[in-house]
């Protein structure tokens, strides 16, 4: 079968959606003898998400993934990837997330950008990102993989909506001009223990770099970041595995905190 065969793209997208619905992970797409390019993987992602959009979910924003040097090295890439945030992925400060809707979740402490104006690449700089941002918020991204045991290559995670599960927005929002986003610290606690610390620069050197990369990557595809959308700018520290009963809390220095429980 040809790599670009739309039948194959559709079949893999449908399979990933079915895996998500059934909470039953599948073998890596890259382990099946197909030659999948990263472009193919984005087409699979589009097909996977089409089912949820058809069922009534709407697009509320985007996520940037693979923003740390460590993850890029692991995946053998030198650039990030992206996925879409849908309305049924949203949780808020203090919510309880039923772990049964996820397969093998892990938590990432991130900074979320809430856009004030549309942003269309190419040519978007960090200054444009900050000028177009209404607020930044402390945020958990709960990543999850529809691929067995997280055995992902870059094409697997891209096809699987950049391994996005759900996300949690914290109870604080601040104009990004009031913060040094590269140096603000992040402390992540699980059940009261400090399990990770990091700083803004862990996301591509500066969280706004991740947003600029996204706008510049989406521009040529005819997609803009829209006013009101949420953009998750990438993990600031190591990923933390989660189980039912866990309580997670994260604080960003100078910004505020976000907490969530899993049941």
């Amino acid at each position: 079968m040809s790599a670009s065969s739309s039948d194959l793209i559709d079949a893999l997208g449908d399979e990933l959606h079915a895996a998500l619905v059934a909470r039953s992970p599948v073998a890596p797409l890259t382990s099946r003898g197909h030659e999948l390019s990263i472009e193919d993987a984005y087409r699979i992602q589009e097909r996977m998400l089409r089912h949820r959009l058809a069922a009534g979910s709407s697009i509320v924003g985007k996520k940037v993934g693979a923003t740390s040097r460590a993850v890029q090295t692991l995946l053998g890439v030198n650039q990030p990837d992206f996925g879409l945030l849908l309305s049924d992925m949203i949780y808020n400060e203090g919510d309880v997330i039923p772990i049964s809707r996820l397969i093998q979740p892990k938590a990432e402490g991130e900074i979320a950008f809430i856009m004030k104006r549309d942003l269309t690449g190419p040519g978007v700089t960090v200054a444009d990102v900050i000028a177009a941002t209404e607020a930044v918020m402390p945020c958990f991204e709960i990543v999850d993989s529809r691929i067995q045991d997280w055995k992902i290559k870059i094409q697997d995670t891209v096809a699987d909506n950049a391994s996005c599960g759900v996300f949690v927005l914290g109870g604080a929002a601040l104009d990004p001009r009031k913060l040094d986003l590269a140096l603000c610290g992040m402390v992540l606690e699980k059940n009261g223990d400090v399990v990770a610390t990091g700083a803004g620069a862990a996301a591509l050197g500066h969280p706004a770099n991740a947003v600029a990369w996204l706008a510049n990557t989406l521009g040529p595809l005819g997609i803009s970041l829209k006013a009101g959308e949420v953009v998750l700018s990438g993990s600031l520290a190591t990923l933390i595995p989660i189980a039912a009963g866990d309580h997670l809390s994260m604080t960003i220095g100078g910004l505020g905190s976000c907490s969530v429980r899993f049941a």
């Binding site: 610290g185 992040m186 402390v187 400090v194 610390t197 862990a202 220095g253």
Partner: peptide, 22 residues
């Protein structure tokens, strides 16, 4: 806030590690 005070250690111009006071 010394708990959340963030830091970046750079080695030969490349970010080496990230952390916070906690």
């Amino acid at each position: 806030d010394l708990r959340t005070l963030g830091m970046v250690l750079e080695h030969n111009g490349k970010p080496f590690s990230f952390g916070a006071g906690a």
